[in-house]
Amino acid sequence: MYVTISPQKSGGHFATSSADYVNYLEKENQQLPDQEKELFFDAESDSISPETVTAEIDQNTAKLKTSEARFYSITINPSARELGKLTSKEQLKDYTRELMKTYAQCFNREIDGRGVQANDIKYYAKLETQRHFKGTDWQVKENQPFANQIIQLKSQQQRINRGEEQGSIQQLQQQISKLEEQAPHKVNGVRITQGMLKPGDQSHVHIIVSRKDASNRYSLSPGSKYKASEVMMNGKLVKRGFDRDRFFTAAEKIFDQKFQYQRNFVESYASRKLFNQKPKAYFQQLSRLSAPQKKLAFQLLRQSGLKVPAIPANKVQLAVKTFNRLRKGLKVAIKSSSIGY
């Protein structure tokens, strides 16, 4: 499960309106008839218009400074393996609602003398079913040397067409066709390039959550660097902070319990933290997994683009050279939605 929380910016500044972001989330609806469009949802409704979302978020910004985020974006990106446990989009929506209840509980704040509750959070979520390959995706990167050669050959064809140089356009086309065939990553026989739609189930959820609580009185920032602390504000002792560890852990715990999902070690938030803090301990724990779990772990790592050497599943002896190679590659691969946050 790959979950992110980020303040929305326009260029180098915080966005003063949610309109641009809401419009961006309408991209899948642009070519659909009204009856097929996916509307926004919240804790109570499945049929919220984009205009309502923009108005509600933009009006809920009392006393916020221009240097403060008006709203945050949360994305929920289940892996292909996790999506395989779902049978309908309604299940992903229900999961989102459950997770947002925990989101409220992760604030170390009080509202009217009590802890933050789910109905204090003003949020709107949008389920999407498409994703596009980015320039940072490992498939695009590994195809790039072939793409560069193809671009050069096509430029040469254009120069020949303009009479700027001599050559055979047909021979160049044969070279281009050969490179297209040699490119390692394809979808339905077509070389993967940046912007191409990803195949399979790509369901994920975007959430727009207001910086202010539903009453428009209290600021609730999940971007706070404080997990739990107290500070004097206007002569009052005020609690502050947001427990990201608790939230990210809950994201997988709720999913696992709700859908009876058996999470592998390399898919867990705890393993990602272990890798970042103690990489040697990460690989030691990886080596101690049972044979079936170890086999699945390396399969998931390979699917993320990590070049994992052929290591026997029953006994892993990670030499220093192999360890360093895996560690370098895993820094990128662990960001994949299939194995981490």
Rank of each mutant, 00 (worst) to 15 (best):
M232P: 07
N216Q: 13
S49R: 03
P279W: 03
F40A: 10
K331H: 07
N60F: 00
I311T: 04
H132T: 14
Q277N: 13
T96E: 12
S155C: 08
N324E: 15
T4G: 05
V308T: 11
F41S: 11
Q91F: 12
Q139H: 11
Q171H: 08
P50V: 07
Q299M: 08
F259H: 02
A250R: 03
Q202K: 00
T66V: 10
E90V: 11
L172C: 02
E51S: 10
S219E: 14
Q171E: 02
L32S: 00
R191K: 11
A333S: 11
E181Q: 12
T96P: 01
T102L: 05
Q170A: 09
N119H: 15
M100A: 08
F133P: 05
Y2H: 14
E267V: 06
S210L: 02
D201Q: 02
I207L: 00
K278Q: 13
A104M: 03
Q105A: 14
V231C: 06
Y103F: 15
L289G: 06
S215T: 14
Q117S: 13
M1S: 10
L326I: 04
Q284D: 13
Q117N: 11
K227D: 12
L197A: 04
Q139W: 04
I254W: 02
Q30S: 07
S268E: 06
N276K: 11
Q317K: 14
L306T: 01
S290A: 14
P279G: 10
Q293T: 04
L318K: 09
M100H: 08
V205C: 03
Q173H: 00
S73M: 05
S215R: 11
R263M: 08
F259S: 01
S17L: 12
N161Q: 15
G167S: 01
Y24N: 07
N77F: 02
I311P: 04
S6M: 12
E181M: 05
S337V: 05
N216R: 02
E180R: 02
I254Y: 02
N119D: 15
Q91N: 09
H13C: 06
Q166F: 08
V316D: 01
Q156S: 09
A228K: 13
G84Q: 11
H204N: 01
Q156M: 12
A43I: 05
K307D: 15
K65R: 09
I160A: 02
Q174C: 00
K178S: 07
A80E: 10
K154W: 14
G223W: 01
S215D: 13
Q158T: 13
S88M: 06
E36R: 13
Q293E: 15
P199T: 06
N143I: 05
T249R: 12
K307R: 14
A125Q: 05
I5M: 10
K198H: 04
K134A: 15
V320R: 13
M233D: 14
A43F: 03
Q170G: 01
T75Q: 10
R302T: 14
T54W: 00
I208S: 01
F71W: 00
E181N: 07
E165C: 11
F259N: 04
L286Q: 01
Q257G: 09
G223S: 08
K278F: 10
E230A: 14
K212P: 00
S168Q: 02
N234Y: 14
N143G: 10
T75V: 11
Q35I: 08
E26R: 13
K85I: 07
G223N: 08
S88E: 09
N314S: 09
L318C: 03
E230R: 14
R81E: 10
T193M: 12
K278V: 02
K239Y: 15
A214C: 04
